[in-house]
């Protein structure tokens, strides 16, 4: 027992310095003014940003949903291939992340522009150009592209542990494809789904830069405002912290809802 405790000490110290302490500072700043006196003003000012919060959460949720729908079959297919192929496919999934995030988002700007790659291609086919850049659509595309690997990897690591014989057994007993998915795969991969959603939703909701590069900077997301309060022109740690705090609470609420759904899912899967 004590051995375990000693082994976890470095992590505990790390958590204390880099997670607990900064979190405490965020809370401190959120509830004080520039002179350090206690106030609720910062939190009350958040009301001005309610629409931005709503849009950020909606776009983040949409991106997460698209990631989930796209990643689920991919992760399943990867998990059913041979070991060698699996390694290669996982590496290919991760590969875009070796390139700088900004550079990748810049590339998407060139892809989605009115005279960008997609529209040039459509032009070759004699089709009308589609306006995509500087819209919410482009922002969601940027989120999906940047965060997709964070959905595939956790799903894959759970699915690869699902015993092939369980699926075969279900099929032998007469389950059709949908039933196998609904009653075997889904419940068994639920932990991966929850992890994936967390890993995509959290950065997507709080993202900045994507909205500036792909959204044309006309409609900032909550991450852009927070950035502006910390390292932008409007340097104000107090309001910035209040925004961060409210964002954290909202994300926790969203995660709690996902967690509940997940538990129901598991119950339904096993019981029914």
């Amino acid at each position: 027992m004590t051995k375990h405790k000693i082994a976890s000490l470095p992590f505990a110290v790390w958590m204390l310095i880099f997670t607990i302490l900064p979190l405490g500072m965020v809370i401190w700043f959120a509830f004080t003014d520039s002179k350090g006196t206690f106030t609720f003003d910062n939190i009350l000012k958040i009301a001005d940003f309610s629409e931005t919060f709503l849009i950020s959460i909606l776009l983040g949720a949409l991106a997460t949903l698209i990631c989930l729908v796209m990643a689920y079959p991919v992760a399943f297919i990867i998990s059913r291939t041979g070991e060698r192929v699996q390694q290669t496919l996982v590496m290919l999934t991760m590969m875009p992340m070796w390139m700088n995030f900004l550079l990748r988002t810049y590339a998407w700007m060139s892809i989605l522009e009115d005279k960008g790659f997609i529209n040039q291609f459509l032009g070759l086919l004699g089709m009308e150009p589609i306006h995509m850049i500087n819209t919410r659509f482009a922002v969601v595309v940027g989120m999906v592209y940047n965060f997709l690997p964070f959905m595939i990897i956790p799903l894959y690591s759970v699915m690869v542990k699902i015993d092939k014989s369980i699926i075969e057994a279900a099929e032998d007993l007469g389950s059709n494809g949908f039933q196998v998915f609904r009653r075997i795969l889904l419940p068994l991969s639920a932990p991966g789904i929850v992890t994936g959603i967390t890993m995509v939703f959290v950065p997507a909701v709080s993202t900045f830069v994507i909205s500036k590069l792909l959204g044309g900077g006309k409609e900032w997301l909550i991450g852009d405002f927070i950035e502006n309060y910390f390292i932008g022109t409007a340097k104000d740690y107090n309001i910035g912290s209040a925004l961060s705090l409210v964002l954290m609470v909202l994300i926790l609420l969203c995660m709690a809802v996902t967690g509940l759904v997940d538990r129901d899912e598991e119950k339904g899967g096993i019981g029914g």
Binding site: P96, L103, R104, Y106, A107, W108, S110, I111, F117
Partner: peptide, 10 residues
């Protein structure tokens, strides 16, 4: 290829 093109542009 598209990514590469994007990179080249940058």
């Amino acid at each position: 290829k598209i990514l590469l093109a994007g990179m080249c542009a940058v």
